[in-house]
Amino acid sequence: MKFHRSLSIAALFCLAAASQAGAHPHVFVDARLEVVADDDGNVTALQNVWRFDEFFTSSVILDYDANMDNQLTGKELTDIGDTVRESLAEYGYYTQINDNGEDVPLAEPDVIHADMMDGQLLLIFSAKPSRPIKLSGHLTFGIYDASMYTAIDFQRDEDLAMIGDAFGRCKAAVVRPDPDEIISQNSDALTAAFFNDPTDMSKLFATRLDLTCPD
């Protein structure tokens, strides 16, 4: 039974990428991302809160409600967090970090905490970049699913936040790309991606925190 539950939630998060050519969102997430830096201007953590839509939450309850009480508590929530931590490792936890033109993976979080609030599944976790990042030059941070199976949205600009006095040196902006403008500027490339692999193009549509910091 545990294998069945793990396979099910992994499929809901990840395995739908097999049909990317006709990809459109099936899971909807309201996210909050806090980029944390120390006083020396080093990025020390990316802190995440993801709130999932009610339909997806219902499917997770069906798979993980071991005692059939129509709730998720205790070990049921722990099992969800452990499964997501393992399942999303291959996908970099949907996290995009770019340090002066170089993509930097997110290191595996020590733990992903699952919880329920107002009938919706929450995932809460903190992780570090896989290598040190200094607040210098041009940096971007965001969360998106390259397969476009999961739609991750930041409801407010404040949901992409900076924690630490070192950010006071940087010029910051939340960038929300205009889909019509992106399509107009990249029509040939997007057409090719539609028939081949859309994952490289999906980042063009993703909301991101854009930082410019002095060297």
Rank of each mutant, 00 (worst) to 15 (best):
I97V: 12
P109D: 08
L122I: 08
T44R: 11
L106Y: 03
L123S: 09
T83H: 03
E86M: 04
G81L: 13
A114W: 05
D39N: 10
G41H: 09
Y93Q: 02
G92H: 01
A114T: 09
T44F: 01
G41D: 08
Y93K: 01
D40C: 02
E54A: 15
A114P: 06
F55P: 00
T95C: 01
N100C: 06
M68D: 15
I61M: 11
V84L: 10
M68F: 13
E108L: 05
I124M: 09
K75H: 11
E108I: 10
Q47V: 11
L106P: 03
L77H: 05
G92M: 00
Y93N: 01
T73N: 10
D103H: 04
E76V: 03
V60R: 03
D53K: 01
D40K: 08
E102K: 10
N42H: 10
M117D: 11
Q71G: 06
L123W: 03
Q120I: 00
E108P: 01
E102C: 02
D118H: 10
R85D: 09
Y91R: 05
F55I: 13
A66R: 09
D65A: 08
N67D: 15
G81F: 07
G101M: 04
A89E: 14
E102V: 12
G119R: 06
L121R: 08
M117P: 00
D110T: 06
A66N: 05
T95V: 03
I97H: 00
G81C: 10
G101F: 08
T83S: 15
L123Q: 04
D115S: 14
S58M: 12
A114I: 09
L123H: 07
Q47S: 07
H113S: 14
P105I: 02
D69L: 06
W50L: 12
I97D: 00
Y93D: 00
G119Q: 06
N100M: 00
L106M: 12
N42G: 09
T57N: 03
P105W: 02
I124Y: 01
L46T: 05
D110N: 13
G92W: 00
V60F: 09
L72T: 07
L106Q: 02
N100S: 09
D103F: 06
P105G: 02
Y91E: 15
I80M: 10
S87K: 04
L62S: 14
I97E: 02
G41P: 08
G41M: 08
N100L: 04
E54K: 14
T95K: 00
G92N: 15
E54R: 15
E102R: 10
D69N: 15
T73R: 14
N42A: 11
E54V: 13
Y91H: 11
L46E: 04
A107E: 12
A45V: 06
I97R: 02
E108K: 14
V104C: 09
D53N: 06
E108V: 14
N48G: 00
V111E: 15
Y91K: 08
H113M: 08
M68K: 15
D110I: 03
F52S: 00
V111Y: 12
L123T: 03
L122F: 06
A107M: 05
L72D: 09
K75N: 11
D103T: 13
D53Y: 01
F55A: 12
K75F: 14
D79W: 05
I112Q: 13
A89K: 14
